[in-house]
Design a binder for these strands. Structure first.
Ligand SMILES: [Mn+2]
Ligand SMILES: [Mn+2]
Ligand SMILES: [Mn+2]
Ligand SMILES: [Mn+2]
Lengths: 224, 224
DNA sequence: GCGATGATTTTGACATGTCAAAATCCTAAA
DNA sequence: TTTAGGATTTTGACATGTCAAAATCATCGC
């Protein structure tokens, strides 16, 4: 049986691999999971012995086929659970991450299937993160962020890549959530800010760091 | 933080205390949790050191106030989760116990409240087991079983005290589930059997061991 | 009162995860 | 080419849970 600790390590490596290509360093993993460097190194040996990763000492790790599949399933559980908590249980998108971090290790296949059915086999979670398929396939789309998208164009929020509850609550208050229409009014390089206007809401300002966590796509009018 | 292992031990002692008064032996705990006797002894020391039980070596243990409260909360989570899986997720009462055994350690207070609301603050789980209140109070009712109830009287199934999936599926096929009406047609001492007639179903026969796990109450006509 | 017997505890080991601190390695700058 | 500094690994410890097998206890029957 694979423990929840192992699942968290695999998921972490999987997500790092989505973003950068090449080997993932143990230091990166240690800091992402908030453990001491030596702890991560020890776990890399364990995972390598189990055939879930390949480990090149001093260089980094990479998931094997088995490891990747397992990780994708953990991530799938995480994201389906998050959506379930929002859609069925009526929780806020700002408070589901912590619960999902635990439940992703506790939900049986049977239960996950029920959730998936109940939600209509969704393809993205409440933050716009794509949900791996039941077979473990994940397709990430590339979107511009509030820093790189066109100014004064009609946009749709596609994804928010920052789980911080306070940040998500702020966006929610302004109506900036996946699916909603917004436009970028202006960018002030000097001030390091971006001013955003939600359709049907008041304009407000974000720092560039925060703005970079909001991904958008051209609002082609479609999408319910 | 209290681990899921500790929670399972406390719940086990709590349920044993409900049935017998006096101290609970370490042997009883070990066999209920399927661990070696020495393992249970070691854990009793740990729990005693944490102030969750009082431990009299060679004699047995008893929950303290703190231990009892904690155990009641675990049991509450278990039973609310079971009911949620049946009522909301559409799972069978025969397959929820295993899932609940895990989820009882993973569900946050927030999520449990949502489930409880959604279910209308229920007082019993799908097996008729009473649900401890949010404050940790449990009131068990005494019911006669199929072995002790009157013959040929109109009865209502109140509770089934055996989690075995096969047994529950059998009862379900015959319509013997909490709330349903049945009567006992006959008992054959020599054959060690009881014959039961569900209202609107065919009579069938149970061994006495199994019959003792079905609790009933006089069918006073009320109850939806 | 005295064992025999069955339950309980003790002992010594092992598996998993974790840390702090020491040792080692790698690389980029001089 | 050398070396200093940062990253990585190693080492030694500890916490939790678990087991098998040996030691101990408690008590019931004689
Ligand atoms: Mn997790
Ligand atoms: Mn998410
Ligand atoms: Mn459990
Ligand atoms: Mn139950």
């Amino acid at each position: 049986m694979t423990t929840s600790t192992v699942e968290d390590y695999l998921k972490c490596i999987y997500q790092a691999e989505q973003r950068s290509s090449g080997l993932i360093s143990t230091g990166q993993i240690a800091s992402a999971l908030q453990v001491a460097p030596g702890t991560a190194t020890a776990m890399m040996k364990t995972l390598a012995d189990s055939g879930l990763i390949t480990y090149e000492p001093y260089n980094g790790v990479r998931l094997t086929g088995a490891g990747s599949k397992l990780a994708a399933h953990v991530l799938r559980r995480h994201r389906v659970v998050e959506l379930f908590l929002v859609e069925v249980m009526g929780m806020s998108w700002s408070e589901v991450h912590g619960d999902a971090e635990i439940l992703e290790h506790a939900v049986s296949d049977r239960l996950l299937d029920r959730m998936d059915d109940m939600l209509g086999k969704p393809s993205v979670d409440p933050h716009g993160d794509p949900i791996p398929s039941p077979r473990g396939v994940l397709r990430e789309k590339e979107y511009p962020t509030l820093l790189t998208c066109p100014l004064r164009a009609s946009l749709r929020v596609a994804r928010v890549t920052d789980q911080s509850a306070e940040f998500l609550k702020l966006l929610e208050r302004h109506g900036v959530m996946p699916g909603n229409a917004i436009e970028v009014e202006s960018r002030e390089e000097a001030a390091d800010t971006v001013t955003v206007k939600p359709s049907g809401g008041k304009a407000f300002t974000l720092g560039c760091r925060a703005a970079g966590a909001v991904q958008v796509e051209p609002n082609s009018g479609k999408q319910a």
